[in-house]
Each structure stands twice: as structure tokens, then as C-alpha cells.
Amino acid sequence: MEPLDETLSGQAQVWKHMFAVADSMALKCAVELRIPDIIHSQAGGPVTLAQIASRFPTPSPKTAYLARVMRLLVRKNIFSAHRDGGEMLYGLAPSSRWLLQDASHLSLAPMVLLQGHPTVVSAWHYLGDCVKDEGSAGFKRANGHDLWDLQLENPEYNRIFNDAMACTNKFMMKAIVDACKEGFERVGSLVDVGGGTGVAVAEIVRSYPHIKGINFDRPNVIADAPVCGGVSHVGGDMFEAIPSADAVFMKWILHDWNDEDCVKILKNCKKAIPEKNGMVLIAEVVLQPEGDGLFDETGLVLDLLMITHTGGKERSELEWKKILEEGGFPRYNIVQIPSLLSVIEAFPL
């Protein structure tokens, strides 16, 4: 018989993971109710429950329910709290500052809303089915459309998705443009493949004004792209052809696709750039399955997200090396940046 403490510890672990969904839903609740912004408007706190609830657009918010949600989020270090007499006062913590929706702040709030969206959550229920049958991804099984087609069919979901991608660009691109300075300084033109509304390439051009930027994505995506100096928006299909440039940039694109599709995309990248001095910059997770870094576990979770949502995968360095070589890029260099992502600089010669 196992020692009692090990048995209880194992049981406790199962309970914890079983109800981990409550953590993400509580986080989504805080973003939807704009609780971080309400506290921030009071100089970051401390504020009472009543002060928070008074800002909700409803005549009779359930303060007792709010207290219970905040109790969990405080325990998870999303908010800070201390008792003053008989009343609990709440403030922002480092985590909740990443949930502010004020445009002047770096924020993950749009990504929280995307990952908590019913269409996204429903796909997770098909993880077991995806393991049993390598057919369509769980997202299509749950929603009747794959992720890309749903964006075409549902403008509201398309907006939520694009907002989520744009919010990560705002802070990840700062790390990327700083870390890859040598590469960006030597190219005159750059095409961002799958660039969404153009936030990423706009940041590159803003940091390196000599670069002619091309934001390349599906026509329905660039239809919502704002005008940005130094950047042109081009609609198309990366599986057919990619606009010519000195360099290709791709952030969070290849992880959506299986190895065969990635090789097709990389071969089109190779056709789009000069053979001698061309370069592809790939901003992606480089898995460290045994690692204990800040983002290593998140990389493994994202890998399961790829199973259920796109049929793609996150990759280790050896897996990246394989598809790069098959796609025509035998030489590469991995640049570590202070982010969930790394940058892979790949060269055709």
C-alpha cells in the first residue's frame, strides 16, 4: 500500500488538473468585466468589492459572487488583496497588469478572450478523438468549419482572432526587432507571411524605416488591416505563391501546419527570396520538453492546442531542422529572445 501522503498528493493533483478550466474561466470573467481596468482607474488600488461592482454596466451586480471569483484569482496571484478592518481591499499584481485593455498598455486580454471563446473551448473536448483518429482537427468537429473557414463565415470571431494575434505582436515584436537587429539592417524589403492586420511588419518598419514592408495574408484578413506608412497589404495564398522580397518573416504560422504543408510553405519562401543573400525569419516556439524555463510548460500546452485546433504541432530543434532542410534551408541559427517564442534565422545557402 502506498504511503498515505503520496496517495493524498496524487489525488490532490488529479482534482487540481480536473478543475483547471475554472482558472481560465475566472481569468476570462475578470477580463470581460474589465476588473483590472477598474482597479487601474483607481491608481491600481486598493479598492473595495463595492467600488469594483459599481462600475459594472448592470443595476444589481452580485457582489457575493464577485467576492468568490476574486478569492480564487487572489490565490492564483492574479490580483493582490489585504484586509483593512473587516473589509477586503484589492489591487493589481504583475499578472493582472497584463489584462488591462487600455490601448496604451501591453496586454494579453484579447488572447484570454480568444482562448476562452466557446468555439475554441469546444475543440478541446475532441482531444481524445484526435488521438484515436488523425482525421479533421477537433475545431472542425466541434464547429463544422476549420479555424480559417470560420473566420470567413463569422466576422465577429474573425475580429476576436485578429485582436488576439495583434495583442501578442505588440510585445513579442519588441523583443524580436531588438534581438535580430543584424538581420533586419541588411534587408531592403520584407514580407510578413500570415501577417494578419499588419501589426508585426509595421513594428519592423517602424524600427527599421529603410525596409519596404509587405503584409501578406488572406484577402478577408487584410480587408480589416489599417493603413500604415511603409507597409503595403497584399492578399493571397501562401501555398500558391509568396510576394518577392529580400526576407520572409513568419510569426506563429508554421506551427499551424503538419510537416508536409510546412515544407510546401518553406519552398515557396525560398522562391520568394534571393538565393544568395535571402533569409527567412521564423518566430515560433522551440520546444524544450525537459526544460524548466518560464515558458517551457506553456510550449507543451500549445502543442496540444495545435492537435485540437489546426492539426499542426510545436517543434523541438531537431524537428525544425528536419523541415527546414526539406524546405531548402540547410543553414539556420536560433536566436533566444525574452519571450515565449524564439527566432529561427534560416538561409538557403
Rank of each mutant, 00 (worst) to 15 (best):
L73Q: 13
F19R: 12
K313V: 06
L113Y: 06
V201P: 02
L266R: 05
Q336I: 04
V14K: 13
P59N: 10
H309S: 11
D237A: 00
G236E: 00
K181T: 13
L281V: 02
L341F: 14
K76R: 15
L127Y: 05
A225S: 05
D296I: 03
K270T: 11
H233L: 01
H233E: 03
L324D: 07
Q151C: 12
V231N: 07
V280F: 07
A245K: 03
C167E: 12
N220Y: 15
L152Y: 11
F239A: 00
M1R: 09
Q288N: 06
S122L: 10
S41A: 15
F139L: 13
H255Q: 03
A241F: 03
G45H: 05
S95K: 15
D149T: 12
E325I: 10
Q11V: 15
N143K: 13
G135W: 13
C130Y: 12
M306C: 12
I78F: 14
S244E: 10
L302R: 01
G194A: 07
L108W: 06
V193D: 08
S207Y: 10
G135R: 15
F139Q: 09
I222Y: 03
G299F: 04
G91N: 05
E134Y: 14
I337Q: 03
T48F: 01
L147I: 14
I307T: 03
A22N: 15
N154T: 14
M279N: 05
S316P: 06
V21K: 13
W98D: 04
V31W: 05
P36K: 14
L318P: 00
Q101C: 12
I204H: 08
V248L: 08
P219E: 15
H255L: 05
L113K: 12
P118T: 10
D292W: 03
H309P: 05
T308Y: 02
D102F: 09
V120K: 11
N333W: 06
R141C: 12
N258T: 02
D237C: 02
A346E: 04
R186M: 12
F139Y: 15
L254F: 13
I337G: 02
P57K: 10
